[in-house]
Design a protein around this nucleic acid. Structure first.
Length: 422
RNA sequence: GGAGACGUCGCAUAGUCUGGUCUAGUGCGCCACCCUGCUAAGGUGGUAACGGCGCAAGCCGUUCGCGGGUUCAAAUCCCGCCGUCUCCGCCA
């Protein structure tokens, strides 16, 4: 939820943000209007309520005729109070409903849609397989050769977009996630294993029940949602709390399974394990002071790049365009690894600065000299199942074996090459 | 799944039976000041959040797990839900 005060004081900023995202700027005026109506009806209600309370006190001490007269008046008043309270509540609900529809105010992201990203930099050089004299295999062919990935049995057991990681495949995923967790811990993050089922309130608070609600699994019978990322649980972790940030940002590294319906992606990335219903992820999450958020965002990006360096992948960093930002994000940087068999970049990490948007919804504040204020939250990927795809393809050798990047060897018992099983 | 107990301003607790000086008391902690020459103690005051009005000082409203209800009036009575603990059942 955006800051109502910002919207009141600087509606043009919010209008411009809506414009940049390709959303309706008129929503801003609808909110302003609803806010005015809410305040009017609230003032009316509060005046009546004050009168009612004052008279109520007199009733307590009065007696006889005096009491009867007072009761007659307070009865009328009670009815009026009830009516105005209902009105004030309705006005408030209307305001909330409108306010919830406004996504976070964009901060620095380039305008435009999905294709209007800006490439910030490219790191590493894609291999020239033609020069090396062989045609690269894609990750599934490699994974099957290594007896690492089994999508056929995944489909048999759970349906399309499910898979088994088998043998070295399972070990490789654990290696990636453990390397990510170790790096996070070394940087001072608190490691967390989080719930993957959350209440509607938590899911709504983190901003995932808006435009992309179709992406989320819901357990009807229990009124719970399956998370698409541990960000959800980590954002809820300090919900309704006043956190102490005097020692700097509070950083958590969440390890969890992630579930996505992939409802709108029919026919996209159907082969292999690029786009699946369930995967695992180590996610960084930070609560920090709002002035520190932009710098923390840079740090998140740097930590992601450090992980990518460990697995020795060529990648680029993009500054996501406003229209492609999530509801909660004010700015987002993605790291995309080169995928040789598709001659394109594939998103491996994504870090978002949610400024105070998410924390306001979750009611996470800090104490300052002047009282309390909402904190900022940020998140960023440190490792996922999908990284296997890029690692297999980029480090493959002519014989179908795969070189293990040095950063992962300690997590694979020193193994230097993954050999095909035949 | 069943039974019982509990949920109060950072923490601990009083208040709920018997609705109205509860403007939610007290202790601890914390902050400020005072006193005191001594590894301390004592004294005084302050110390929740959110919202509305106001240039401001301040005034007002909301919140006693959450949501309804009864009532002129609810921390207090009634109903539903959530959570915690104890015991039982069931299951790894």
């Amino acid at each position: 939820m955006i800051d109502l005060r910002l919207l009141r004081d600087n509606p043009d900023v919010v209008r411009a943000s809506q414009q940049a995202r390709g959303d309706d700027p008129a929503l801003v005026d609808a909110v302003l209007d609803a806010d005015t109506r809410r305040r009017t009806s609230l003032t009316e209600f509060e005046g009546l309520r004050a009168e009612q309370k004052a008279l109520g006190k007199q009733v307590a001490t009065a007696s006889g005729d005096q009491k009867a007269a007072l009761l007659a008046r307070t009865k009328q008043l009670a009815e009026a109070v009830k009516k105005h309270q209902a009105e004030a509540n309705a006005a408030e609900a209307e305001l909330d409903e409108l306010l919830y529809r406004i996504p976070n105010v964009v901060e620095g992201a380039p305008p435009g849609g999905e294709d209007d990203y800006v490439v910030l930099k490219e790191v590493g050089t894609p291999r020239d397989f033609a020069a090396e004299g062989f045609i690269p295999r894609d990750h599934l062919e490699l994974g099957e050769g290594l007896a690492a990935i089994d999508t056929a049995r995944g489909a048999k057991v759970s349906g399309s977009r499910f898979y088994f990681l088998t043998g070295i495949g399972a070990r490789l995923e654990l290696a990636i996630l453990n390397a990510a967790m170790d790096q996070a811990v070394a940087e001072g993050f608190t490691p967390m294993i989080t719930p993957t089922l959350v209440t509607p309130a938590t899911m709504r608070g983190t901003g995932f029940l808006g435009a992309h609600a179709d992406e989320i699994y819901r357990l009807e019978r229990d009124d719970l949602y399956l998370v698409g990322t541990s960000e959800v649980a980590l954002a809820g972790y300090h919900g309704d709390e006043i956190v102490d940030l005097s020692g700097g940002p509070r950083r958590y590294a969440g390890w969890s399974a992630c579930y996505r319906r992939e409802a709108g992606s029919h026919g996209k990335d159907v082969r292999g394990i690029i786009r699946v219903h369930q995967f695992h992820k180590v996610e960084m999450f930070s609560y920090c002071a709002v002035e520190d958020a932009a710098a923390e965002h840079e740090r998140m990006l740097a930590w992601e790049e450090a992980m990518l360096a460990k697995v020795e992948l060529p990648y680029r960093v993009i500054d996501t365009a406003a229209g492609d930002l999530g509801t909660s994000a004010a700015r987002k940087f993605d790291c995309e690894a080169w995928l040789p068999t598709q001659q394109r970049f594939l998103e491996l990490t994504s870090t978002s600065n949610c400024t105070t948007f998410q924390a306001r919804r979750m009611n996470v504040r800090e104490r300052t000299a002047d009282g309390t204020r909402t904190v900022a939250t940020l998140n960023g990927t440190l490792g996922t199942t999908r990284w296997i795809v890029a690692i297999l393809e980029n480090h493959q050798q002519a014989d179908g074996s795969v070189r293990v990047p040095e950063g992962l060897r300690p997590y694979l018992g020193g193994l230097e090459v993954l050999e095909p099983v035949r």
